[in-house]
């Protein structure tokens, strides 16, 4: 029991990653509002960042700054670097998504998916 608690507590940030990921996906799945969908997507992506950063953490390690002292344990810097890139990608995606949402709003007058679907249904020629 104690082991289990320690295992859960010890992998706390991994559990958060899973929860965030599920939350993000749930929002994407369940919300009809396009902006909310993008927000969900963002949460989802954030969970990925968290996942990478947790992965690079070495227990007891410091920040990966070369201090010159021998034998110092520091966290793996590479995932952090990678996630910087991923964050950029995430921002770009959000930007494009929001831009699209704007255009959708302009041409449909709504950003509710079911409203748009209704318009499509009536638009389709017999």
């Amino acid at each position: 029991m104690a082991d289990l608690i320690r295992s859960i507590a010890g992998h706390y940030n991994y559990w958060m990653f899973v929860i965030l990921m599920m939350t993000g996906l749930f929002i994407v799945v369940s919300r009809g509002n396009l902006i909310k969908k993008i927000a969900g997507l963002n949460i989802f992506q954030t969970s990925v960042f968290l996942f990478y950063i947790s992965m690079g953490k070495v227990t007891g390690g410091t920040a990966p700054v070369n201090t010159g002292r021998a034998g110092e344990v520091y966290s793996n810097p590479l995932p952090h670097v990678l996630i910087l890139t991923a964050i950029v990608v995430g921002i770009a995606t959000t930007a494009v998504g929001l831009a699209l949402a704007v255009r959708i709003k302009e041409s449909y007058g709504s950003i509710e998916e079911d409203v748009i679907e209704d318009m499509h249904r009536t638009e389709r020629p017999a």
Partner: peptide, 13 residues
Amino acid sequence: RTLPVGSMALWVV
């Protein structure tokens, strides 16, 4: 039929 994007995502899950 074109599914709402949410259902698409559901399929992924």
